[in-house]
Design a binder for these strands. Structure first.
Length: 111
DNA sequence: CTTCTAACA
DNA sequence: TGTTAGTA
């Protein structure tokens, strides 16, 4: 039977907003912050999947705890790509240089 | 981040 | 109903 899979984009922004318990504008803001990537329909309307629901629930939970877009992006980033990128993959000097730069960030947070 | 409005599809 | 953009 053609039951919708967990990655089948069937929910519109309004439905997903009610499901998660946030406003539709938040979903658009979160997409702008690259916190998720919903599918687009023929008329350029956002379509969220069941998988996106769980992601949005995490985002809503983190946002309620006071986590900003940067923190949420990190959490979502690591949960989506777990230990996939290795140093072995970085063959180019640019890639290696980029990894080195990210690793040697300032010890003390003087912001 | 949250809320709302304007013009358009 | 939903999209973008702008506003407070």
């Amino acid at each position: 039977m053609p039951i919708h899979g967990p990655d089948e984009p069937v929910y519109t922004i309004g439905v997903m907003a009610r499901l998660v318990g946030v406003s539709s504008q938040m979903l658009r803001v979160w997409e702008k912050e690259c916190l998720l990537s919903p599918a687009r329909t023929e008329t350029n309307n956002r379509l969220y999947s069941e998988n996106d629901y769980y992601r949005l629930v995490r985002i809503r939970d983190l946002t309620r705890q006071g986590v900003n877009a940067a923190g949420i992006r990190m959490v979502l980033g690591i949960t989506e790509v777990p230990a996939k990128q290795s140093i072995e993959r970085t063959t180019d000097d640019k890639e290696r240089k980029l990894t080195y730069g990210q690793s040697r960030r300032n010890r003390f947070g003087n912001d």
